[in-house]
Amino acid sequence: MSLNPKIVGQAEDAHEAVLVRALATTGVTKQHWIALTLAATATDPAPTGEPAARLSQALRSADPAQVRQILDDLVTAGLLTTEHAVTPAGQELFARVRAETGQVVARAYAGIPADDLRTAARVLELVTSRLDREA
């Protein structure tokens, strides 16, 4: 067996299903989750406009209105401040979903040698980088 788009897609779909299940009762979509994750894992406060730019890149979306709506939704839900910092409610949701999905993913990856996981990560990062350049 060789790495190919079908295998990569199936792995992505399986990971996404775990996330969707964890988000099912939260009112947060995958796009909202990506925005919340970017805000929750940011190391420094982002300059004005940067959260939207990072989200646009992460979603591979050139639609500024869609990106603004996602951020506005999180502000309205009380998960982000108007400056796009994570609120305490946002931190709680982020921690809860991350813990739930982390447990499932840890079980899925259990027993796979660390060297194999590092190799898979390197290959997927390289493929992603090359495809991003093509796009």
Rank of each mutant, 00 (worst) to 15 (best):
residue 34 I to L: 14
residue 35 A to H: 10
residue 35 A to I: 02
residue 36 L to G: 13
residue 36 L to E: 12
residue 36 L to A: 14
residue 37 T to I: 03
residue 38 L to F: 14
residue 38 L to Q: 09
residue 39 A to W: 06
residue 39 A to R: 09
residue 41 T to M: 08
residue 42 A to L: 05
residue 42 A to S: 15
residue 47 P to H: 01
residue 49 G to K: 02
residue 49 G to P: 08
residue 51 P to R: 06
residue 53 A to D: 05
residue 54 R to V: 07
residue 54 R to T: 06
residue 54 R to S: 14
residue 57 Q to G: 07
residue 57 Q to E: 12
residue 58 A to H: 11
residue 59 L to S: 00
residue 60 R to A: 05
residue 60 R to D: 15
residue 61 S to D: 12
residue 62 A to Q: 10
residue 62 A to D: 10
residue 63 D to M: 04
residue 63 D to T: 05
residue 65 A to C: 03
residue 65 A to P: 01
residue 65 A to T: 04
residue 67 V to Q: 02
residue 68 R to C: 02
residue 69 Q to I: 00
residue 69 Q to N: 02
residue 70 I to N: 04
residue 70 I to R: 02
residue 71 L to A: 13
residue 72 D to E: 11
residue 73 D to R: 08
residue 76 T to N: 00
residue 76 T to M: 04
residue 76 T to W: 03
residue 78 G to E: 07
residue 78 G to T: 09
residue 79 L to P: 12
residue 81 T to Q: 06
residue 83 E to T: 09
residue 85 A to H: 15
residue 86 V to K: 12
residue 87 T to S: 06
residue 88 P to V: 06
residue 89 A to T: 13
residue 90 G to S: 01
residue 90 G to F: 12
residue 92 E to Y: 05
residue 95 A to Y: 09
residue 97 V to I: 14
residue 97 V to R: 04
residue 97 V to G: 12
residue 98 R to D: 15
residue 100 E to L: 11
residue 100 E to V: 12
residue 100 E to A: 11
residue 100 E to P: 03
residue 100 E to D: 12
residue 104 V to A: 14
residue 105 V to N: 09
residue 105 V to C: 13
residue 105 V to I: 15
residue 106 A to N: 06
residue 106 A to V: 04
residue 106 A to W: 02
residue 107 R to E: 09
residue 108 A to K: 06
residue 108 A to M: 11
residue 109 Y to W: 02
residue 112 I to M: 07
residue 112 I to E: 03
residue 113 P to T: 00
residue 114 A to T: 08
residue 114 A to V: 13
residue 115 D to W: 01
residue 115 D to G: 01
residue 117 L to F: 02
residue 119 T to Y: 04
residue 123 V to A: 02
residue 123 V to C: 00
residue 124 L to K: 06
residue 124 L to S: 06
residue 124 L to E: 01
residue 126 L to T: 15
residue 127 V to Y: 05
residue 127 V to I: 14
residue 128 T to E: 14
residue 131 L to M: 09
residue 131 L to T: 08
